[in-house]
């Protein structure tokens, strides 16, 4: 009995040792030489493999960084400037400072604002719903609410709001990787400049219909009236196809455009409450 056990242990040990020796030599022989800095750079990256940089994962991005002679075209949106500085330090290059960005869903067509005119009953993804028709409301541009962006987000930065019918982005968690931008079949999501305290002034609408039509489908639709464009002193607002757009790189957060919008399509977020004159302005806008 004990002899058997000893034999067994001995045989297994011999097999194990010889396999280890063979493997060691094979590994030596077939070793692929890699720039050790690739590993270092990869280490410095967040390791989310989200693809927000445009490469297939962090490793590919690290390889591109090592190969590159200057880092101005390369940016890890997740890690931001800090990470890029670290990468630059490893490679002995200069990092270019980039403004942090944050995703925003340009539709405010919640249940209250945009009545449902039919009921969708298919596979619950935006991609499939949008492939058969324009959506549960009469607005063909608006959010479908089935959460393809939510499914695409690797960072839990999007919450589905059944009460609203439109998902919400959690600014503090968003790393601007752009996965949701790709996933949205209605092209509603935009990566905008991130201002301090997540303040933002933005046209929450993508409706390109003529004013009357747009207004009928959704009470907070942009009707392309152009009042905000006139109000803006920084040329940040442009009107195209009956739709206003605020360029976040030009916007100075003065908020002048918000009260002039007759449909409340421009929304401001995370500002302290306004002090004066809001009453009058409101009256004005309803009188229009």
């Amino acid at each position: 009995m004990s002899i058997t056990v000893i034999y067994t242990i001995a045989t297994l040990s011999v097999i194990g040792t010889s396999a280890a020796v063979i493997l060691y030599f094979v590994a030596q022989k077939f070793k692929v030489h890699e720039d050790p800095r690739i590993d270092q750079v990869e280490e410095a990256l967040p390791g989310a493999n989200c693809g927000g940089c445009g490469f297939a994962g962090c490793r590919a991005f690290a390889e591109a960084c090592v190969k590159a002679s200057d880092l101005s075209d390369l940016n890890c949106p997740v890690g931001g400037n800090e990470t890029m500085n670290n990468v630059a330090a490893i490679l002995g290059l200069e990092a270019v400072k980039k403004d942090p960005r944050v995703a925003f869903i340009r539709c405010n067509g919640t249940c209250d604002h945009r009545p449902k005119t039919n009921r969708y009953d298919g596979a619950t993804t935006c991609a499939i719903a949008s492939s058969i028709y324009s959506g549960e409301s009469d607005c063909q541009y608006g959010c479908l609410g089935f959460g393809d962006c939510y499914d695409a987000c690797e960072f839990d930065a999007i919450e589905l709001r059944a009460d609203l019918g439109v998902p919400k982005i959690i600014d503090d968690k968003c790393v601007a990787c752009g996965a949701c931008v790709e996933a949205c079949p209605k092209d509603l999501i935009e990566l905008r400049k991130q201002f301090p305290k997540n303040r933002k002034v933005v046209v929450a609408c993508r409706n390109e219909d003529k004013g009357g039509v747009a207004r009928k489908t959704c009470s907070v639709a942009c009707i392309g009236c152009g009042k905000c464009e006139k109000e803006c002193k920084f040329d940040a607002i442009t009107i195209k196809n009956n739709l206003a757009f605020i360029d976040s790189d030009k916007c100075k957060l003065c908020r002048k455009c918000v009260p002039v919008c007759p449909t409340n399509a421009i929304i401001e977020e995370n500002f302290p409450p306004r002090r004066v004159a809001t009453e009058d302005k409101k009256e004005c806008s309803t009188a229009n």
Binding site: G122, A123, T125, A127, I128, S131
Partner: peptide, 12 residues
């Protein structure tokens, strides 16, 4: 199962 829904999507 909504087989055709997803197949049509994949086909597109």
């Amino acid at each position: 199962r909504p087989l055709l829904d997803y197949i049509r999507f994949g086909k597109g």
